[in-house]
Simulated scan of single mutants.
Amino acid sequence: MSILFFDPIPRPAIWGHTLVRDYFGYKQFPEGIGQSWSFSAQKDASTICLTEPFKGMTLRELWKNHQELFGHPNEEFPVIISLVAPEDDLSIQVHPDSQAAKKYGYALGKNEAWYFIKSEDNASIVYGHNAKDEKDLYNYINNDKWDELIKHLSVHTGDFVYLPAGILHALKKGSIVYEIQQSTDVTFRFYDYHRKDKYGNERELHLTQAIDCLS
């Protein structure tokens, strides 16, 4: 059987514009897209096969009905693979592990990893924090000392960074990445630079959940 190709799913984001479309040649994508879910079997966001004899079927349908292609019956599809090209910094966030995720009504937690396809000179990501304990963490937050709280990690083209559940992190503009994550979309937003949407509102934070999940 030949290789199966799938139609990528555009994912709108406040930090996206046209870079995903332009860099990866996804001419069908509109403006305002921050990432492509290029391989997903999510219930409401499953990529569609473009190759015969399965053309028109979703990856989720193939996983359920054609296990001869995979060999993993009675399991959930394990990953989402996406391409991310931010034109502004992403919010600082944390993903729960599976135990914490179930506490908040999700079946799975989320570990993920980034391969840096391209990074500008002096590019970095948010990776971890400087708080010694929960009291110290709230001291940073209550005094709006976000720049002092967060840690940064320098990244370069060709780097691979593992992001275990519980790590405070954020991708920043200046990098294009291949992302692989557990097959769930649970994210708790920790900080968003007091950034406002087109209506003048700051985006919702999930501080209680995020702090509860921090490692």
Rank of each mutant, 00 (worst) to 15 (best):
I150H: 03
A170E: 03
H169A: 02
N74R: 15
E61W: 09
D144Y: 07
V20D: 02
A113L: 13
A100K: 15
L19S: 08
D89F: 08
A41V: 02
A165Q: 07
L168F: 03
F39E: 01
L153W: 08
S124H: 14
I80E: 00
I81M: 14
K43N: 13
I167R: 13
L108Q: 15
I141C: 09
D89G: 08
W15F: 13
P164N: 06
F70K: 12
G34S: 04
E52I: 11
D97N: 15
F39A: 13
T157C: 06
K151A: 06
R11V: 14
L4N: 00
I117T: 11
Y193A: 01
H206P: 02
E76Q: 12
Y162V: 14
F77C: 10
N65D: 13
K172L: 13
Y162S: 14
H66I: 13
Y140H: 10
V84K: 04
I92E: 00
F77L: 14
P30L: 08
S183V: 02
P96R: 05
E134D: 15
S175R: 00
Y162W: 14
Y26I: 00
D147I: 01
Y26T: 00
R189H: 08
Q67N: 13
L163F: 15
K27H: 11
D136T: 05
V94K: 00
E120N: 10
F54M: 02
L149T: 00
I92L: 00
K27R: 06
D22H: 04
F6C: 01
K135I: 14
G200T: 10
D159L: 04
P12V: 06
N122C: 01
D147F: 05
S46L: 01
S215N: 05
F29P: 06
K27M: 02
M57W: 09
H17M: 03
I167Q: 04
D212K: 09
D22M: 03
E87L: 11
H169R: 07
I80V: 13
E61A: 11
L153M: 15
Q67G: 06
Q99S: 13
L59T: 01
N139C: 11
A170Y: 06
F24W: 15
V186K: 03
F188Y: 15
M1D: 01
R21L: 05
H206N: 11
T208L: 09
D185K: 04
W63Y: 12
K173F: 04
L62F: 07
H156P: 08
Q99Y: 14
P12R: 07
D44A: 10
E75S: 07
T208A: 09
I141H: 05
V94W: 09
E202T: 13
A165P: 09
E148L: 12
A113T: 07
Q28D: 14
G166K: 05
L108M: 07
K64W: 01
S46V: 06
L108S: 13
K102E: 11
S124D: 12
V79L: 09
T187N: 09
H129V: 08
E202V: 05
N139H: 15
R21I: 00
I14D: 12
T157M: 04
S40W: 12
